[in-house]
Design a binder for these strands. Structure first.
Lengths: 228, 228
DNA sequence: CGGCATCCGGGAAGATACTG
DNA sequence: CAGTATCTTCCCGGATGCCG
């Protein structure tokens, strides 16, 4: 008898009912984990387990709910992978990819928090998105190179030219330098001023190819000043 | 004996434990209503009840919790108002004000959602922030004026010059045109192409001063294209 | 094994009533 | 007016289990 009321409450009581575009964005991605799921898809489609592996802490049922919600809102789509994988892959829609500026401004603002701890665990997508966000155009002006990354099982290639950087997820080939290791080590090298040698001795990071170039690449990025 | 574990779970289980700056931002403003509370403070300090009045749907205890949380994270501060008000006011810290780009990109992205409904209720802060976000530099190039707004009990003045707009909350004086009415009506006029006459007949909006200028002002803003 | 559905405990959000 | 107290509802997170 109260069925209509129950349905209504589930679908709309939890919304902000606010014409502000930002409030509507929060209706879509304001639930826990939603934005981080999108972040993990920013470099291309992934499978359920891959997303889960890069988001330690999310539980399977919550990931299922978020993927469902984001699909109904048109942020991502579900696709069958070609055999023999025959599993599902989740891919952002064009509009979903347009969420990248959200990570830029959120990342900048969050990184300038006095309580931000850059030594916590980090996913591959996070560190590579941060490169897009934090590159200093001045420092990158004279820099031009293709740099490869192997982080876990994922390969990425960054192309720096004319003060800009583009990063795609693809097999590492024909690169001038190649970083192999954990995302946290890459972050320590780029933002923490930890010497490459230290990281290599720890076995956290390995560099192949032009070491001087790799070193130069790591100097292109600057974190925002801490506030407060 | 499990006390330590319980304490630990309370403080950190709800965090993302992710070095990504965006994830840390979500630790701070990812809870429900938090970003909208910040939005309501973007034009200056407000009192508890003023915030609550502009966020229909938030309950008093949740607002209390958000204000406490945002204060401990350094996003806002609590101040005593000078007598005779002698009440508390909440004001963003400089770092809190730096969150404005979040509303810009969130607003743009949310407004390009196919499901965005611009006819829902709207706060004064929302519509004025949207003016900052959605102004089209080309259209505003030749436009120069001071425009006043009275929305509910709040007064704002927008100054447009050189394709840019600045908006502050202050008493409306020495303006070329003055909008008086509800935020929703202003949105309908600027984004919904609803004629001023219609809104005035409904009593939703009133315009004083230079009507041609007011009309021109309303043409400076464009919503992003809908995706999908 | 990957992708879910189901059940349960704890805790956050929401509504209402109440206090200084 | 500015919150607090309380109660209910619902979401999050973990575990288990089903099914291809």
């Amino acid at each position: 008898m109260e069925l209509e009321k129950i349905t209504e409450s589930k679908s709309s009581r939890r919304r902000y009912n606010d014409a502000c575009g930002a409030a509507h964005a929060l209706d879509i991605v304001g639930e826990r984990w939603a934005l981080l799921v999108i972040r993990e898809l920013m470099f291309g489609p992934k499978r359920f387990s891959d997303i889960r592996a890069s988001l330690p802490g999310i539980s399977a049922n919550v990931l299922t709910q978020r993927l469902e919600g984001l699909e109904t809102f048109g942020v991502l789509t579900r696709k069958r992978l070609p055999p023999p994988a025959s599993a599902w892959a989740y891919e952002l829609t064009p509009w979903g990819y347009q969420a990248e500026p959200i990570f830029q401004v959120f990342g900048r603002w969050g990184a300038s928090s006095p309580l931000h701890d850059p030594t916590l665990p980090l996913s591959a997508a996070s560190i590579l998105l941060s490169f897009r966000t934090m590159i200093d155009a001045n420092r990158a002006e004279g820099f031009s190179a293709r740099i490869g990354f192997t982080i876990g099982q994922e390969d990425f290639v960054a192309t720096v030219a004319d003060g800009e950087i583009s990063i795609v997820r693809e097999e590492v080939r024909d690169v001038a330098a190649h970083f192999i290791g954990r995302a946290e080590a890459l972050a320590a090298a780029a933002y923490g001023a930890v010497p490459l040698e230290t990281l290599e001795q720890d076995g956290a990071l390995r560099v192949e190819g032009d070491r001087a170039l790799a070193r130069g690449f790591l100097t292109l990025f600057v974190l925002p000043d801490k506030a407060g």
